[in-house]
C-alpha cells in the first residue's frame, strides 16, 4: 500500500472529520448560549425545558443520538432519512449545544453579583454592563473548560462512522479489510497534529487574557 495514496485517502476522510468539527462549533457555540440563558431563566417552564434538554442529551451517549437522528425518521415516521452528513451535524450540534450551555452557565453564574451592581450604581445600562464588564470575564472563565470540550469534539468526530460516514477512522478500517493495518494507527498523527494546533491556539488565547485575574 503506497504511503502517498493512503495519506491522500485518509486526508479525504479527515476533511469530513474537519467539516463535522467546524460546523458543530459554528452551530453549537451560539445555540449553547441560548440554552444557557434558558437554564438561567426566571421563567420556570423555559428553565425546566432547558434543563430537561441538557439532562437528556448529556445523559445519553452521542452514539445513540446519532442513530436516533439517522434511523429515527425512517423507523418511526416512514420518512426519508437525512443525508448522512446532515444527520451527523444535527446530532453533533444538539449534543455539543448541551455541553457548551453548561459551560457558559457556569461561566456567567461565576461572575460575582458585585460586578453587575458596580455597573448599575455607575449608571450603566444592562447592555453596557454585559458587553463592557461581564462578557470578557465570562470568556476568561470559560476558555479552559471550552478548550477541553473542543479538543474532545475533535476525537468525537470519529463516532460518525456508526452510521458509516466515511470519516478518517472508517477510511482506515477499509484498509484493514484489505489486510493492511498501519493506516489505522497512522490516523493518530492527523488527530495529534490537529489537536496540537488547537492547544497552541487556546494557549495563545489564555495568554492574551492573562493580564487580569477573575
Amino acid at each position: 500500500m503506497n504511503f502517498l495514496t493512503v495519506t491522500t485517502k485518509l486526508l479525504e476522510g479527515f476533511w469530513l472529520s474537519c467539516i463535522i468539527f467546524f460546523f458543530t462549533l459554528f452551530g453549537a457555540m451560539p445555540l449553547g448560549l441560548l440554552v444557557s440563558f434558558g437554564s438561567m431563566s426566571k421563567f420556570r417552564p423555559l428553565k425546566i425545558i432547558s434543563k430537561g434538554f441538557v439532562w437528556v442529551i448529556r445523559g445519553t451517549p452521542l452514539m445513540l443520538q446519532l442513530m436516533i437522528v439517522y434511523y429515527g425518521p425512517g423507523l418511526m415516521f416512514g420518512l426519508t432519512a437525512f443525508p448522512k452528513m446532515t444527520a451527523v451535524l444535527i446530532a453533533f450540534i444538539i449534543n455539543y449545544t448541551a455541553y457548551f450551555s453548561e459551560i457558559y452557565r457556569s461561566g456567567i453564574e461565576g461572575v460575582p453579583r458585585g460586578q453587575y451592581e458596580a455597573g448599575q450604581v455607575l449608571g450603566m445600562t444592562k447592555t453596557q454592563i454585559f458587553f463592557k464588564i461581564i462578557l470578557l470575564q465570562v470568556v476568561k472563565r470559560i476558555v479552559p473548560p471550552m478548550s477541553n470540550e473542543i479538543i474532545t469534539l475533535v476525537k468525537d468526530t470519529s463516532l460518525a462512522r456508526v452510521i458509516a460516514l466515511m470519516e478518517i477512522i472508517m477510511v482506515a478500517f477499509t484498509y484493514t479489510t484489505k489486510g493492511v493495518i498501519w493506516p489505522l494507527f497512522y490516523t493518530g498523527v492527523f488527530y495529534l497534529v490537529f489537536c496540537g494546533g488547537l492547544t497552541l491556539l487556546f494557549g495563545f488565547i489564555e495568554r492574551k487574557l492573562d493580564y487580569f485575574r477573575v
Partner: peptide, 28 residues
Amino acid sequence: RKKRLHFGLVFQSFNLFPQYTALKNVTL
C-alpha cells in the same frame, strides 16, 4: 438608571472591574 446617579456607592468588597486598569475603572 438616571436617578441613581445622585448617589455613589463604595462597596465592602470593592468590586473593581478586573479587566480594566485603575484609571479605566475610574473613567469607564
